[in-house]
């Protein structure tokens, strides 16, 4: 009886279980983190975004470096290199203050991975860009103004 049930489960559920594990975030190092933080990605202000990501009152830190062009000709593709010298950096998030939704991307940095990320994001208009770092249970940020001459979110 038992073996029959087990077989049925294996046959029908194998792939589904993998999918569920991925969905539940079990394949990630920190299971506590939701698969996709919808709340954080729909916030409009820095304070709300930090709150939705589980933090509060981030401290400004010049140990976080934002490397990007000062003037972006094409807002659809603005390259950013973010690096953090904050000890025990666990995650790096990139936020564009004047985009329709402020949070652009959040990177989890497991131990052994450098707190260094290079990616490209869209900017609707000239805006302050914020890099938010989580270290331990504290949040740190640094910001930089990037001028956009042609927006990347227009219709």
């Amino acid at each position: 009886m038992h073996s029959g049930r087990r077989k049925a489960l294996q046959g029908a559920g194998g792939l589904a279980v993998m999918g569920l594990m991925a969905a539940a975030g079990l394949l990630r190092p920190t299971a506590a983190r939701a698969e996709w933080n919808k709340e954080a990605f729909t916030t409009k202000s820095f304070a709300d975004a930090v709150k939705a990501m589980g933090g509060s009152q981030p401290t400004e830190s010049h140990d976080i470096l934002i490397n990007s062009p000062d003037i972006a000709e094409n807002g659809a593709v603005v390259p950013f290199t973010i690096s953090s010298k904050v000890p025990n950096t666990q995650s790096i998030a990139l936020l564009v203050e004047k985009n329709p939704n402020i949070l652009a991307a959040d990177f989890e940095i497991p131990q052994g991975t450098e707190p260094w990320i290079n990616t490209r994001v869209k900017m609707g208009q000239t805006s302050r860009v914020i890099a938010l770092v989580k270290a331990g249970d504290k949040y740190y940020y640094n910001a930089k103004e990037v001028k956009v001459t042609l927006g990347g979110c227009g219709g």
């Binding site: 933080n37 991307a105 989890e108």
Partner: peptide
């Protein structure tokens, strides 16, 4: 077998 990076992205990441 070890996760070396995990990211959540919004639609603001470039095409």
């Amino acid at each position: 077998g070890k996760t070396v990076l995990a990211a959540e992205w919004g639609p603001a990441v470039s095409k």
